[in-house]
Amino acid sequence: MSAIALVFLSVLSDIMIPIAIGGGIALILGVVIVITAKFFDVPVDEKLESIKALLPGANCGACGFSGCEAYADALAQGEPNAGRCPVGGPDMAEELAELLGLAKPDFIPETAQVFCQGTTENTNKRYEYAGTPTCIAAAGLFTGPNSCAYGCLGFGDCIAVCQFGAIGIVDGIAVIDSSKCTACGMCVKTCPKELIRIIPKHLNAYTVRCRNKWPGIQTHKHCKVGCIGCQRCFKACKYGAITMDGPLAVIDPDQCTHCGECLSVCPTKAIRNGLTGNVPEQIPSEEAG
């Protein structure tokens, strides 16, 4: 009887000592963690948390900060403009302003716009491209298969980065549905031809839908609707909204009064008005992209 008790005791001690060592170390470490946590306590800013909860969390950087967190930080520390986030839209800007006690932001809705009309009808192909089907890869091979070196390649790199399903390929070029676009600017950063710009979301916006810097003759040879730099719109505009960037007319959306003078004089129809005319009837579904 006593022998069994002895064996039992020795087994118990064999188990108990390791448990004591493990438990002891764990206990000591736990105490150390609690002490450091007390000692290095960082108060959590409740205002910051509620700002973060309001922001959409797209982390696109369109506000000019590195992400939603950085913008929330800036707001909490006194950034006066609550209307920097295009993704959240005017409603969210108002809520933010209310929360922070800021002046009501004057929020101008914006949208992305593809500055190219080089559809398969209007341009030609120089060669058959059979490589990786992305714009950035195609652009690396003699600036891409398009006859116009500045034009949209239509492989849809912008579609891949768009988190809002606002872009589709129609007739070989990217087209943005302004009703879905939040102007986050991801496509602007992605396009290897720098064809996408953020413009104010004006339903009657006038834009030169071309980025071609070739001389007019060369442009016209390769694209029926390219800007040939004839300067007619430049001369026709009474408000100084059009400037010439070399052989390319550029309309400043802030100064444009939407009078339509430039549209009527443009010989190639490179100038277009309206965002809605640009919306494809059906954005291709995700399988197609």
Binding site: I33, T36, V42
Partner: peptide, 16 residues
């Protein structure tokens, strides 16, 4: 045990 606690402590100290 030690590694987990160590990482936790480093994190708290760095945060502050």
């Amino acid at each position: 045990l030690i590694i987990a606690a160590l990482v936790q402590i480093i994190e708290t100290i760095l945060k502050k």
